[in-house]
Amino acid sequence: MNEELSYAYAVVRPTPDLAEGPVPGVTGVASGAVRVVGAGALAAAVGSVPRSDFSEAALKVRLEDLDWLERVARAHHGVVEALAARTTVLPLRLATVYVDDDRVRDVLRRGEETFTRMLDRLTGHVEWGVKVYAEVPRAPAAPAADDAGASDPGRAYLRRRRQQREERGTAWSEAAEAVRRIEAEAGEIAVRLARHRPQQGRLAVGTGENVANDAYLVPGERSEEFRDRVRRSTRDLRGVRVEITGPWAPYSFAVLTEEPEAPGEVGGP
């Protein structure tokens, strides 16, 4: 049995500098080289990965290891972004693996119509991420200075708790207004919107509670206008933090509704 599998990063159209063969200067998952595998008018960026880590059985265990998953995700993202700097890419989901390059070619042939349609839709567009945070105040851990001498500490505590609930409600209300304004303003430029689950725990970065975690598909030449509109639309809101990231390859809009073969599975012979 072959001890290596073919890990597919993205579907592209072949170009002079992305022809069949190695992609110089690009390193992928498991520190492996990246190559282009072609089939007619389409191609895929592929790398070899060890079966011991990427077989269907191994992935069921590996995908529970957040440190390992983060390393794979970073390497996968690095390859896709390197490709996106050269051409339009249709990113594939993390850990899309096949038994060999011939199976990759077979998937490209059978999915040519779907892949081509999606590449046409994404050409000239980039993804921008917009996260909205409500800057919610922390719960009072100790009496405030003006409550320290109060004759009824319990009543003072309840007063502080009530104030915190009011401030929390205000912050969430302002954050909801920020989401509405951003969608209204930026939506005039973006051609598609994808809503993701708000990030919590280890995935959340920075202060505040993540209220919205959205992605916008934007014509590349209007990126600066998009960013300006997002910033302007929320400038006067208090207790709200807006994070704009990008431009990225259009991960959120590369969802195949008619997958030739389920990503994440090892293709059969």
Rank of each mutant, 00 (worst) to 15 (best):
M1L: 12
E4K: 09
L5H: 07
Y7M: 04
V12T: 07
R13N: 00
T15I: 01
P16A: 10
D17T: 09
G21S: 05
P22W: 09
G25Q: 05
V26M: 01
G28W: 05
A30N: 11
A33W: 00
A33I: 00
V36D: 02
V37E: 02
V37M: 02
G38R: 12
A41G: 13
A41D: 15
A45N: 03
S48I: 00
S52A: 15
S55A: 11
A57V: 13
A57S: 14
A58T: 07
L59G: 02
V61K: 14
V61I: 11
V61Y: 08
R62Y: 05
R62V: 04
D67A: 14
D67W: 06
D67Y: 04
W68S: 06
R71W: 02
A73S: 15
H77R: 09
E81P: 02
A82V: 06
A85Q: 14
R86Y: 10
R86Q: 15
R86P: 09
T88A: 13
L90A: 10
P91Q: 05
L94G: 03
A95T: 13
D100L: 13
D101G: 07
D102T: 11
R103E: 05
R103G: 01
R103H: 10
D106P: 00
L108H: 07
R109L: 08
F115P: 08
D120T: 06
L122S: 02
T123C: 01
H125K: 15
V126T: 08
V130M: 08
V132W: 05
A139L: 15
A144P: 12
A144T: 08
A145L: 14
D147P: 01
G149R: 09
S151R: 14
D152H: 13
P153M: 13
G154N: 00
R155V: 08
Y157S: 01
L158R: 13
Q164R: 15
E167S: 12
T170F: 06
I182C: 04
I182M: 04
I182L: 04
I182Y: 04
E185Y: 00
A190C: 02
A190F: 01
H196I: 12
R197M: 07
P198N: 09
P198W: 11
V205W: 10
N210D: 14
D214S: 13
A215L: 02
L217K: 06
L217E: 11
G220V: 10
E221L: 10
R222F: 05
S223L: 10
F226T: 10
F226V: 04
F226M: 06
R227P: 00
D228T: 14
R229G: 14
R229Y: 06
V230Q: 09
R231A: 15
R231G: 09
R232G: 09
S233D: 05
T234C: 10
T234K: 03
R238L: 14
V240H: 12
E243G: 01
I244S: 08
I244W: 06
I244D: 10
T245F: 00
A249L: 07
S252R: 03
V255D: 06
E258N: 07
E258A: 10
E259D: 13
P260G: 06
G264Q: 09
V266C: 03
G268S: 14
P269E: 15
